[in-house]
Simulated scan of single mutants.
Amino acid sequence: MATIRHHFRATEEGTFHKRLTALTRMLGVAAAMVVLVVGAVPQAQASPSAAYIGDGYPNNPHGVWCVQHLINDVYEDIYPRMRPIPEDGLWGPNTKWGVKWFQDQVYLYPDGIVGRATGQKILEEGDSYYGGHNYCYSYVPNE
C-alpha cells in the first residue's frame, strides 16, 4: 500500500482513497470498452457453402490461393522441392492443370473444378497449417 500511496503522491488518507476509487472506475470503463470492441469484431466461421472455384465461377482470391498452396503441398510430397502452381490467388491454366492433376491422384473425376468433394480432399491432403479446419476451410468448398 505504501508504494501505491507514494505513486499517487497522496498526502492525506482521503485524497488517496478518492484517487484509488477514480482509478478503479477508469479501469472498469476501460475493461468494458475492450469487451465491447472485441465483441463487435466478427469471428471467422467455417463455410461449407464457399463458392466453387474454377472456370466460370467467382473465384475468391483467398480460395484460389488456398487451392494453389494446398495442391502444391501434395505435389511436393510426391516430387520433392517442386511446386508447379504459382501461388498468386489468380485462377488460370496452371491452377486448372493442378486441380485436374490432384483430382486424378485422389480418384475424382478430373474436371478442373473445385467443388465440395474436391475441396474436401484438398483440405484433407494439403498441409495442416492452412488445410483441415484452419484458414482455408472458410474459402474452399467442402462437405
Results as ranks from 00 to 15, higher is better:
residue 94 N to G: 05
residue 84 P to K: 00
residue 104 D to M: 07
residue 33 M to H: 08
residue 87 E to H: 10
residue 60 N to P: 09
residue 14 G to T: 13
residue 137 Y to A: 11
residue 38 V to D: 07
residue 26 M to P: 03
residue 101 W to A: 01
residue 63 G to W: 06
residue 134 N to V: 04
residue 41 V to A: 15
residue 19 R to H: 08
residue 68 Q to Y: 07
residue 86 P to L: 00
residue 107 Y to M: 13
residue 106 V to C: 03
residue 21 T to N: 09
residue 31 A to S: 14
residue 4 I to G: 08
residue 71 I to H: 00
residue 8 F to V: 09
residue 99 V to Q: 06
residue 6 H to V: 06
residue 2 A to K: 15
residue 74 V to S: 02
residue 31 A to R: 06
residue 57 Y to V: 04
residue 17 H to M: 11
residue 12 E to F: 06
residue 133 H to E: 10
residue 49 S to R: 15
residue 72 N to H: 01
residue 115 G to D: 12
residue 62 H to Q: 13
residue 89 G to I: 02
residue 123 L to S: 01
residue 94 N to A: 11
residue 38 V to C: 15
residue 30 A to D: 07
residue 39 G to F: 09
residue 37 V to K: 10
residue 51 A to W: 12
residue 79 Y to M: 05
residue 132 G to A: 01
residue 22 A to W: 12
residue 88 D to H: 08
residue 48 P to T: 05
residue 87 E to T: 14
residue 93 P to E: 07
residue 63 G to T: 04
residue 65 W to H: 12
residue 116 R to T: 13
residue 81 R to K: 11
residue 31 A to Y: 12
residue 140 V to K: 02
residue 14 G to A: 15
residue 119 G to V: 04
residue 88 D to R: 04
residue 102 F to W: 02
residue 90 L to P: 02
residue 68 Q to G: 07
residue 40 A to W: 15
residue 107 Y to A: 14
residue 98 G to R: 00
residue 29 V to W: 08
residue 59 N to F: 12
residue 141 P to Q: 01
residue 16 F to R: 03
residue 123 L to H: 00
residue 12 E to R: 09
residue 24 T to C: 09
residue 83 R to G: 02
residue 99 V to P: 07
residue 28 G to Q: 09
residue 87 E to A: 10
residue 84 P to Q: 00
residue 61 P to G: 06
residue 47 S to V: 15
residue 67 V to K: 02
residue 35 V to T: 10
residue 127 D to N: 15
residue 102 F to D: 01
residue 86 P to D: 01
residue 81 R to N: 13
residue 84 P to W: 00
residue 82 M to I: 11
residue 62 H to G: 10
residue 61 P to L: 06
residue 48 P to K: 07
residue 127 D to W: 05
residue 9 R to E: 13
residue 34 V to L: 14
residue 101 W to M: 00
residue 101 W to Y: 02
residue 17 H to L: 15
residue 1 M to E: 08
residue 136 C to I: 00
residue 127 D to Q: 06
residue 131 G to Y: 01
residue 137 Y to G: 05
residue 19 R to Q: 14
residue 37 V to A: 15
residue 92 G to P: 00
residue 89 G to R: 03
residue 64 V to R: 01
residue 105 Q to V: 08
residue 47 S to K: 15
residue 48 P to V: 07
residue 32 A to F: 14
residue 13 E to K: 13
residue 4 I to W: 12
residue 71 I to P: 00
residue 67 V to L: 03
residue 88 D to M: 05
residue 59 N to E: 03
residue 111 D to F: 13
residue 108 L to N: 04
residue 100 K to S: 12
residue 75 Y to V: 02
residue 37 V to H: 12
residue 44 A to H: 15
residue 25 R to N: 04
residue 111 D to R: 10
residue 60 N to E: 10
residue 134 N to Y: 07
residue 137 Y to C: 05
residue 53 I to L: 14
residue 19 R to V: 05
residue 10 A to E: 04
residue 21 T to D: 07
residue 115 G to C: 11
residue 98 G to I: 01
residue 55 D to Y: 09
residue 120 Q to C: 03
residue 121 K to L: 05
residue 114 V to W: 06
